[in-house]
């Protein structure tokens, strides 16, 4: 019996490393569950389609972000460093530092990188759509994006979303 595939429509609006995960995790999982998936990348989310992803974490705007060290004994790694927001927001290079800590921690724990998840999405037929308006506003060219990206607007997303079982804004 040929069943109609379930559909999921996602909007990815954030370009930070932490917020890059949910759309790609959900999309790769949904594809593994035989769903048809479209992700519409808009505003800062559009940067996740660039050939080289340079997403960072922004600790100063996420005060609940646990600051942990990705090395040393387990007790040391589990310790949550109480770094004041004033420092996280004002010390030059703190974002880069926090980003490298998060990437290392993720790697140690066995979490896939954003690039790996994005490749899984492409290989499993997830449709990645860049927002035309954001491209125009930020001056992004289609050549800056990975192959296989479509460019469209809100109507294209809504047409698919209206026929979807799941619609999420990330």
């Amino acid at each position: 019996m040929e069943q109609k595939k379930k559909r999921m429509a996602l909007i990815a609006s954030q370009g930070t490393l932490d917020w890059a995960y949910p759309p790609f995790i959900l999309a790769s999982t949904a594809a593994a569950m035989d769903m048809e998936v479209h992700i519409f990348f808009t505003f800062y989310g559009l940067t996740l389609l660039k050939k080289k992803i340079e997403a960072k974490v922004a600790p100063q705007t996420n005060p609940s972000m646990p600051m942990k060290m990705p090395f040393g004994p387990q007790g040391f790694q589990n310790f949550e460093w109480p770094i004041p927001n004033l420092i996280m927001g004002n010390v030059p290079g703190f974002e880069t530092f926090a980003t490298s800590l998060m990437k290392k921690t993720f790697k140690n724990k066995g979490v896939a990188t954003i690039e790996e998840l994005r490749n899984i999405c492409l290989e499993s037929g997830v449709k990645l759509i860049g927002c035309q308006m954001t491209m125009d506003v930020f001056g992004f060219k289609k050549e800056e994006f990975i192959d296989g990206v479509d460019v469209a607007g809100a109507a294209t997303f809504l047409e698919f979303a209206a026929e979807s079982d799941i619609q999420l804004f990330v």
């Binding site: 995790i25 594809a31 593994a32 569950m33 066995g110 896939a112 499993s124």
Partner: peptide, 14 residues
């Protein structure tokens, strides 16, 4: 072993 969400499900599916 050693892999976290969503990789186990993705690999199982493949």
């Amino acid at each position: 072993e050693g892999l976290l969400c969503p990789i186990p499900v993705v690999k199982l599916s493949n």
